[in-house]
Every structure is written in C-alpha cells, then in structure tokens.
C-alpha cells in the first residue's frame, strides 16, 4: 500500500447515451490531503466522484487508489479504502433505523455482533448523533441525516473520504458543525462543492473542473483569487476573500 495515493491518468467517461462527461482528467492526491473539487453544474464533478468508488468505470484512462487499480475485480478493496458520502442523505440512509444503517457496512464486513454495538455507537458519538440511534431516518432533520450518513461511512474507518456537496440543504449552524467535524479528520478528503467558503476553510488544494477537464489545480487561496479563471468556470470569489463593500478593506 502506497499510503493511499489517489492517481487519475487521462480518465475519459461517456454515458451510454453518448454524452461525454469526462474528457481526460489527470491528477494525483497524496495521503492526508484535503482537496476541493469545484466547477459549475454539469461540469463532471459527480461523474468523477462516482469513479472513486467504482460505481462508474472509466471508458479509457485509469484510476488507482493506494496502488490498486479501480477495476471490477478490485472493487471490494477499493470500496474498503474509500468512504463515500452521497449528496442526498435519503439515498444513503436506507436501513430502517439509524443504528441499523450505521451497522449495515459493518455487518457486510463481517464484524461480530458482540463488537457491533460499540463500533456503531462510537461512530455516532464522533458525529454527535448518539441520541438518534433508534430513530427512523425519515424522521431526522437534514443536518441530522447528514451527520448519520457520515457516521455510517466513518464506522468503516476508510482511508479516503469522498463527499458530494456536503453542505447542500444545511442551515448555517449545521454547516458550521460539519466544518468543525471535518476539521478533526485526518483522512484524505475529496470534497465536491459549490460552497467555496466551505472549500476555502477546509481544503488546502482545489481542482477546478470545467466541461470534463481539469482547468486549474493548485492551492485553494490562489485559485479562488483568480477571478478570470473563476468566471470562466461559472464560479464566484468566496465572500470570505472579497473586499468589504463598505470600507473597501479586507473583511
């Protein structure tokens, strides 16, 4: 294992109807890095994320995670290493109760029932949702759902955390809590988001994706400072980096 380096080499992907979603994407993410994946709607962010867990396989090019190529026969190992938090928690929380949902992946790993309770509760405590364990997922708030779906992934102790729009539909307080939580993680993090302030706070590196291609790759602050680049990718400078509209100084 080479420390869970994520390496993409000229990934192309076209949907069955012929739409080309990725047109030769290459990058390398070393262990422990926190990377924001930004780009306009339809740029190919979600398609790329689906490749990290092998739900989609490249039409051409290659992707490897920790030295393991993402191919059909390697999928169990890849999914063991990568934890994916979906954009809509309702898609991810499919089991009848919070406890059972967090236990789902653990049971698939063959965790014995004696250890199950401890592991589930540990993951729920990490995200501050231990009190929700008996609740059915459809009776949770959006923030609670997000927390529980992260717990379901954390319980499997992945090396790489992949998140699709983690702040969507969250109120400011839940968003703040999520940032606090994610800051404590030591995992490699790949976060697709439109929330550039969130990316700025959490990620040291940003990848800008535009029409299926990586158009910029570098330190987040640098990239978000390049207004022309942002504009060409239908993005906008995060408010945290804008000058104060009243006095003209830095906020």
């Amino acid at each position: 294992m080479s420390h869970h380096i994520v390496e993409a080499d000229k990934i192309h992907y076209s949907y069955p109807d012929g739409t080309a979603a990725l047109a030769g994407v290459s990058f390398r993410i070393p262990h422990g890095e926190s990377v924001a994946l930004v780009g306009e709607n339809g740029a190919g962010k979600s398609t790329l994320l689906q490749h990290f867990t092998g739900c989609l396989l490249p039409s051409s090019g290659s992707l490897s995670i920790g030295g393991v190529s993402v191919e059909k026969q390697n999928l169990p190992a890849v999914r063991r290493a990568v934890g994916m938090v979906f954009q809509n928690p309702d898609d991810q929380l499919f089991m009848p109760t919070v406890f059972e949902d967090v236990a789902f992946g653990l049971l698939n790993l063959g965790v014995p029932e004696a250890e199950l309770g401890g592991k589930v509760m540990g993951a729920l405590e990490t995200v501050g949702a231990a009190q929700l364990k008996g609740r059915p997922p459809y009776r949770l708030s959006q923030g609670e759902k997000r927390a529980v779906s992260i717990a379901g992934v954390l319980a499997l102790s992945p090396d790489i955390l992949v998140m699709d729009e983690p702040t969507s539909n969250l109120d400011p307080l839940s968003r703040r809590r999520l940032i606090g939580l994610l800051k404590t993680f030591k995992h490699t993090r790949i976060i697709a988001t439109h929330d550039l302030d969130f990316a700025l706070e959490l990620c040291e590196r940003a990848l800008v994706i535009h029409k299926g291609l990586i158009t910029a790759d570098g330190p987040t602050r640098e990239i978000f400072g390049d207004e022309r680049l942002l504009k060409s990718s239908s993005l906008e400078k995060p408010s945290g980096m804008r000058k104060c509209p009243v006095c003209g100084g830095k906020q």
Binding site: Q50, T53, C55, R79, D91, F94, E100, F104, L109
Partner: peptide
Amino acid sequence: RAMLCRGFDGHIRVV
C-alpha cells in the same frame, strides 16, 4: 450505489 459503497454483496444482514 450507496449500498455498494458500503460493501453490499446481495445480502442484507439484519441486526
């Protein structure tokens, strides 16, 4: 897909 990502192999294991 969410199920696959958490190791689903065709069997649902119930607690």
